[in-house]
């Protein structure tokens, strides 16, 4: 019969409409602005309304999420920044759109390169967030950030990030990527132990 298909379609919409209210009643007042209800609403069992109430509630980003690289530094005993970066330049070589500039300087006394970047720039108007720099950095010194709320009014002033803007402490890195951090620390500890053992064997 003509019109059945249309009614079926409208029925689906009606079902979605009612489900939203059923879920509202089921969760009664706890449906929004809570982590557990957000997870429920956005998971594979989602029914009814599917909306994230940004900016009041934010969809959590997974650990691997990548948006604009940052430089990891460790805080020294006197509070100074110890950069993990040795300015080896692998990130700037592997960067597909070539948006990383690194300035390495030489020690005035010995003439040998200082294993730390003097300057570090990333043009975020070119960066394609591919994550290759973080993936191939042998010192775990450059990592992909989770902060995506970067909108600005002036790109000419703000959009070439310098070393200051890119630096973030290792504790921040630990907080956004706990699993990766633990894994890397374990690998580092293992390496250190092996080194130690070798030295003892000598």
């Amino acid at each position: 019969m003509y019109g059945i298909g249309l009614i079926k379609g409208l029925g689906v919409t009606l079902k979605h409409f009612i489900e939203t209210y059923l879920d509202d009643i089921r969760w009664l007042g706890r449906r929004y602005y809570r982590d557990e209800s957000l997870a429920e609403r956005q998971g594979p069992h989602a029914r009814g309304i599917f909306t994230v109430q940004y900016p009041e509630e934010k969809l959590p980003v997974p650990e691997e999420f990548r948006c604009i690289p940052f430089l990891v530094y460790e805080v020294g005993e006197d509070g100074e920044r110890l950069y993990r970066c040795t300015s080896c330049g692998i990130c700037s070589k592997v960067c597909p759109p070539q948006c990383i500039w690194i300035v390495r300087s030489n020690d005035p006394e010995t003439g040998r390169p200082i294993p730390s970047p003097t300057e570090f720039f990333i043009d975020i108007d070119i960066c394609m967030n591919c994550g290759l720099c973080a993936e191939y950095c042998p010192f775990d010194a450059i990592k992909m950030d989770h902060d995506y709320e970067l909108a600005s009014y002036d790109r000419l002033a703000d959009h070439i990030y310098n070393k200051e803007r890119l630096s973030k402490p290792v504790t921040y890195y630990e907080s956004i990527r706990p699993m990766n951090f633990a894994f890397e620390e374990a690998a580092r500890a293992e390496k250190e132990a092996a080194k130690e053992a070798r030295r003892k064997a000598k």
Binding site: V52, V61, C127, A151, D154
Partner: peptide, 10 residues
């Protein structure tokens, strides 16, 4: 300006 490639919906 919204940086990102592509910026996520949020």
């Amino acid at each position: 300006y919204v940086p990102g490639c592509p910026p996520t919906p949020q």
